[in-house]
Structure formats: C-alpha cells, structure tokens
Simulated assay, not measured.
Amino acid sequence: MRPRDVALAVLPPALWAIAYTIAKPTMQTFPPLFLMSIVYALTALALFRPWGSRQTPVWAVIAAATLGGSLQSALIFSGIALVPATLAVLTVQSQVPFAVLASWAIGQERMNGRRLLGVTVSLAGVALVVGLPDSVGELRGLLLIVLGTLCWGIAQGIIRATSRDSGGSLMGAMSVIAAPQLLAMSLLLETGQGKALFNASLFDWMAVLVLALGGFVAAYAIWYGLLRHYRVDQVAPFALLMPIIGVLIAFLFLNEQPTPLVLTGGVTILIGLGLVVRAPRTAKIQTA
C-alpha cells in the first residue's frame, strides 16, 4: 500500500473505536435501533446524491446495505447496550477474520494455511472473550455482536467483489437503504422513540453527530474507497487498532477496568490477526 493509503487506513478504526465508546452512554437515552436509524439518515443526508451516476449493481448495494448496514448495526449496537465498551470493542475484532473468510468464499482472496491459522487463532480469542460474561445479559450481548460482525464480514466480501463507485457514493447509497430498514425494525421491536427525541440533551445530540459524521460518514467513505483498490486482507487488518484505542478511551472516559482475562482474549485476537496480515500474498489483485 502507498504511504498515503496506509495513513488513511489508520483513520477508520480510530473513528470506529471512538464511535463505539460514545454509543454506549448515548444508548441510555436512545433505543439502539432508533439511534442507528438517525445515524444512517444523517449519513445519507451528508453523502447521498440522487443525481449522481452509480456503477455498482443495485442488488449489491441492497445486499451490502442490509448485511453491512442495518442488520450489522442492529445486532452490534444492541449488543453494545448490554456489555461494557471494552468487551464490545474486543469482540468486534471478529469482523476481520469473517471479512477475510467471506472474501475467500466469494472468490476474491485465496486462502492458505498460515492465513487460515490466523483466522482460527483470532476466533479462538473471540471465543475466550465471549466466554467471560458475568451475566446472561452480557452473553446475549456478545453473541449479538459476533453475529453482527459476521454480517459485516459478508458485506465486505460483496463490496470488494462488486463496488465500482467512490467510498462516499457507495456509503450514501447504502445509508438511504439502511435508514428506513432500521427505523422499521425500531418501530416493531422498541419503544420510547418519541420520549428519547424530547428528552435528549445537547450532549446526546452532539454524540449522535460525532457518531454519524465520524464513525460513519468519514470512516466508511475512506474504508470503502480503499476496498476498491486493495484486497480485503490488506485493508481489514487495520481494524487491529480498534481494541488499543477503544480500551484506552473506555479506561479514560468511562472508567472501565479491563480484567486480565479480557486482555488475554484481546491479545489472542491480535496474534491471530497478525498471522493474517503476514500471510504470503498469494491473493488475486483486482484493480479498480
């Protein structure tokens, strides 16, 4: 990767770590699905241009928006509401091996023994973290996060194989689809939307703006732009920065103290993902 693109690839995981941490206290005011419908609506307002021409197949945009947008957000942020932010950020790292596996299954990457070992070790680390919940609620939250990362990984494989648009254009089109899907799910499954709108403080609305503009508009515009030019196994491992930043933020601002076992699970995830990164580059390269 070019140095400029390496620098760009560092930004999304940093923004996501901040977004996940901010989302935790914000969901005390907003129901999770309703919050994400607002975030995707703001993202659509910022990025969607109905008059622009798009080359990515419509079916791919719908599939990516549903899997990597509404379902992923519904599952992950519902899970975040039930677990500490540190635990959530560590478990979200399962998205990297899932993305590599999904891209391999779709035919964009070639699996080899070392990469497969790295994926296996990463998932073992996730299993270690998931096996540490202190309550049934935490276990349910962690399982929701893992299912959400699986949806996200499949979406990355679809995007890598089919995307022909800029990252911002693709994210805008996906947000137009994901926002009403999430709102419909919220109206069916949640209550208190109107109360949240009227009772939200200025801090809550500022957090929503940071979540939308930083964690979605900026982060995904950069991320999907990189996926047009680089393999999934080149881009996805930059998410390794999320646990480092996320645990630090949760410690500094939410006063969360990660246990030794949680940290052990996080280190195991990082070791496995390091093997994925260092695996021989035998994958096919697709130019955009």
Rank of each mutant, 00 (worst) to 15 (best):
R114H: 05
T120Y: 06
S163L: 01
L273E: 12
G107H: 04
A124G: 14
P32L: 08
G125L: 05
A74P: 02
E190V: 04
S122T: 13
G118K: 02
W16D: 08
N255W: 14
L202M: 13
G107D: 06
T264E: 12
L275E: 02
V146M: 09
C151N: 06
A184S: 09
S201F: 00
I159L: 02
R160Q: 06
V136P: 08
V232Q: 04
Q156T: 13
I106C: 06
I154V: 13
A46K: 04
D233F: 10
F77S: 09
A105Y: 06
S135C: 11
T43R: 05
S186C: 09
T149Y: 05
D165Q: 02
L183Q: 00
P25A: 06
V83H: 10
F253W: 14
L147W: 11
G125T: 03
W104L: 09
W51T: 15
G214M: 10
P32T: 08
V92H: 04
M174Y: 01
Y20A: 14
A23S: 13
L261V: 12
P84N: 13
I177H: 07
G118A: 02
R110H: 01
L183P: 01
Q28N: 15
K284D: 15
I38G: 02
S186M: 06
R4V: 13
L90I: 14
G172D: 05
T56N: 02
T191L: 06
S122I: 09
V217I: 08
F30P: 06
R228W: 01
L226C: 00
L101D: 04
L117T: 14
P13C: 03
A17W: 07
R115E: 07
F216P: 01
V83Q: 11
W152E: 03
V232A: 00
L150W: 02
G192Q: 10
A184L: 14
Y224R: 00
G131Y: 08
A179F: 06
D233K: 11
I80S: 07
L144E: 07
E109R: 01
L263K: 10
A99D: 03
N112M: 00
D233P: 04
R115C: 05
P133N: 10
Y220S: 03
A7S: 11
L263W: 08
D134N: 15
T91A: 14
S53K: 14
V58I: 15
I158S: 03
Y220E: 04
P260T: 08
A46R: 01
L273W: 01
A212Y: 09
P57T: 08
A44S: 10
I244Q: 11
I106P: 06
R281A: 15
Q93W: 03
M111N: 02
N112W: 06
M171F: 01
V146C: 04
L273R: 00
S78D: 09
L273I: 12
L90M: 12
D233Q: 11
Y230W: 02
M174W: 01
R114A: 11
T268P: 07
L142K: 07
H229Y: 05
S122E: 07
M206L: 15
V176T: 11
G118I: 01
L182P: 06
Q181V: 05
R228K: 07
